[in-house]
Design a binder for these strands. Sequence first.
RNA 1: UGGCCCGUGGUCUAACGGCAGGACACCGGUCUUUGGAACCGGGGGUGGUGGUUCGACUCCACCCGGGCCAACCA
Length: 777
Amino acid sequence: MDFVRSMIARDQETGKYGGSVVTRFPPEPNGYLHIGHAKAIHLNFGIASEHPGGRCHLRLDDTNPETERSEYVEAMKRDIRWLGHDWGEHLYHASDYFGKLYEYAVLLVRRGLAYVDSSTEEEIRARRGSVTKAGVESPWRDRPVAENLDLLERMRAGEFPDGSHVLRARIDMAHPNMVMRDPLLYRIRHSTHYRQGDGWPIYPMYDFAHCLSDSIERVTHSLCTLEFENNREIYDWLLAKVDAPLPRPEQTEFAPLVVEHVVTSKRQLKELVGAGAVRGWDDPRMPTIAGLRRRGVTPAAIRRFCEMVGVSRAHSRVDHGKLEFAIRDDLNRRAPRAFCILDPLKVVLTDFDAGRLVSLTAPTMPGSDDGTQEERDLSLRGEIYIERGDFAENPPPGFHRLRPGGEVRLKYALTIRCDEVVRDGGGRIIELRCSHDPGTLGGVAPKGRRVPGTIHWLSAADAVPAEVRLYDRLFAVPDPPLDDLPSALNPDSERTVTGLVEPGVAGAAPGTHYQFERLGYFFTDPADSRPDRLVFNRVVTLRDSWAERLRREGSGTGRASAPAAADPERGARTRNVDANAARSPEASLSSGLERDRFRELRSLGVGEATAVSLVRSQPALDLFHQASASHPASAGAIASWLVNDVARLVRRSATLAIRRLAPEALADLVRAVEADDLSHRQGRRVLEALLEGGGDFEEVRLSLDLAEVDDEETLRRVVEGIVAANPEKAADYRAGRSGLLGFFVGEAMRATGGRADPQAVSRVATETLSAATRASS
RNA sequence: UGGCCCGUGGUCUAACGGCAGGACACCGGUCUUUGGAACCGGGGGUGGUGGUUCGACUCCACCCGGGCCAACCA
C-alpha cells in the first residue's frame, strides 16, 4: 500500500473525518489531459472507490478566464470516462464558487487579514525579496479596514482597470516561505470567462480558491503533486483564518509521473502542436490521453502502468519500457492475430503448379487452449510475399530465417528452401525462387525434421494493401531539454509504409486491435481508417530479443557496457566518501556561543554527536542542566536520552511536550535504566507517559504495569515455542543467516506483549538456537 | 546567509525499531509453428560517516547528492 492510502487508512481508524473519504481531481481546463494526469485520476478516483461511501469530485479549476475553454472541459470529461471513472453527480466548477469566495475575501478584509494593494506588478515583485532576502512591506499594507472594504467592493463592481489593484493576504513579508509573503488573493481581469461570461471583473488566485473550494465541497483528502508542497502552508492558513468548518481538508503531495522520452508540461505540449511537430493533441505520438487512445493504448494498460509505478514522495523517472510492458501485457490477451507484411519481398514457389490453391487455417489466439480455439482462413498459392528482413544473403551468426540454400517454415503452411536469388539491374533483390517440402503441409514438420525458423507470409493474390504508421518514441533522449525540444525530436518517430495484410483483416472497423504476428500490436486509426481503406497505427512492437542482440553486438558494446554506463554515477558516490567523512559534526556549529556550550557539554561527559544536537535546542539544554546537576555521573546518558528519545517522541506526536517533563523525573528515569532497574525499552514507555502527562518517575512507572519478564526459564520456553513453530527459519539461522536472530527476538517480544527484557531474550535465543544445533548435529 | 521536501539493485516501489521483498529491465534454462507468450532459475540494493538501541532502511546529528519556491498561472 502506498503512503497516501496508508494515511487515509489511519484517518479512518482514528475517525478523523467521521469515516468519510472525499477526494477530488481538479484540472484547469486549459489543455488536454495526459499520462501524468492519469496517475492522479487513478489515485483520486481509485481511493474513493476503495472506501464505502467514498467519492471523488471532478472539479474544473477554472479561475483564469484567459486560458480556459469549454472545449477542454468536454475533452477532459471524455478522457476521464474513457479511463474508466465516473464522478456521478459530483461535477463542480471553481468558478461556480466565485460568490462564496468573494464573501470569504470580505471576511478576511474585515478581520484585518487582507488588504488592497495598489502597487504595480513590478513594485510587488520587487518588494517580494528573494529566497535569501526578506521582502519589504507594501506602502498600502496598513490601509484602514473600511478603505480596503470600499476598494474591494469597487474592484468587484468593475470600477478599476486591470492591474490597478490586487487583494493580498496580510501575513509576513519576511516569511522564509515565499508563498507566505502576502500572497495575492484576487486580481482584476476584465475578461470574458467561458462559463461566467462577464459577470466577474475580478478573479481569485489558485492559493485562495483551491483550499476554499476543497472546503466548500467538504473534501477530506486533497491530493496534489510535489510542486505544491510550499503552498500547503497558505492552504492551512486560509482555512484557519476564515474559520472553515471542521474537519478541514488536508493537502498531501505525491511525486508527479515522469516518463523517460516523454514530456508532459502543458506548455511544451502546446508548443509541439503549434510548431507542427505533431499533427495535433491526439497525434498517436502525444502523451495525451487522446493521443494514447488514438494510438491504440487501452485504458486497462494505462491503469496497470499507473499501478506498477506506485505513489511515493520520491522524485523519479520511470523507464519507458514499463509502459510498453503494460501495453503488451494487456493487448497480448485481447488482440487477435493476423499476418501483415511491412516490407514485402516476392517469393515464387517454383514447384507449385500454376493456379494451385491450398486452404489453411491458423489460430486467432494461439496459446489459449481452452478448447474454444477460434481460427482464421489462410490461402497459399505459388506466389507469396515474405518480409524482406526475413531473408539474408550473408546472415549474421545466429540468424535462423531464410538464406540462400537454406530452409524456413512459412508459419501454419509449409517449409520452403531458397534456390535462387533474383535481382534487378541495380543489384537489388526483387524475388526469391524457392521449392517446398510437400511433407510439411500445414506447417507440421515430420518427426526428426528440424526447421531453423518460422516466418509469416501472405499469398500475393489474396493480400490486401493497408497504410501502416510505424510509431517510435517522440524524443530521442530520455530527458528532453525543455528549452530546446526540437533538437531532441526523434526524426523517425513516425514512418508510414504501405503494407499488406491478410484478407480476413479487410473491412476491419476503426478502433480494432490486432497483433500482427512477429511485428507488434496494431490498431486501426479511429480517425483515418475506413473498412475499405485501412490505416493502422503501430501501438507497440513485440519484445524482440533478436533485434536487441543485433543492436548490442552491432554497437560493439556487449553486456559489459550496461554496468559501465552506470559507472559515472557510482563513481561519484564513492568519490564523495572522503569528503563526507571529512567534517565533524562540531564544525557545523555556527556561533561562538554554541561552540562554548558544546565544549562545556563535552567536558561534562556528553558524546560529540549528542552534544552538537543538544546545543541547538534551548529547552532540551535547560532540562539537561537541571537534570544532570544533581547526577553528574549520568550526564552523558541524560543528554543521550534527551537527544535520541525525547526529541523523537516530541517530534512524532503533537500531544507530547518536553515542558511537561520534570528534570527530576528524567534523572530518575535515566538512573533507573542505568541501574538495570528496567530496560531501555520500558524506559521509553515511561518517558512517553511523562511527556504526555508529566509527573513523578516512580509514580508513573508504577501506574504503567511494566512488570518485566526476565526469568530465564520462562523466556526459554517462549523461545523454544517460536523455534518449534518456525523450523525452517531456525535452520536458516543455523546455516548462517544470523540476521534472523532479530526475527526470533521480535517474535518473543510480541509473544510476551513487549514485556520481555529484549537483552535477556536475545541471550536466551542465541543459546537455544545453538543448543539445538549441537543436539541436531 | 533562506525555507521546505526527497535519496532502497539499472528503473519504479514495499518492509509497527525485529526475515531487505515485489514489479520492469537484464542473464540463463524449459517449452514453442511468433527470436512473442507461458513456465523455471540467476545476479545485483538501503548515498556516506558517526550516534542511540539487544537489534536501525526506519530514530538522532553531520556530510554528499537531488527537487521545489521570488506569474496579477495552476
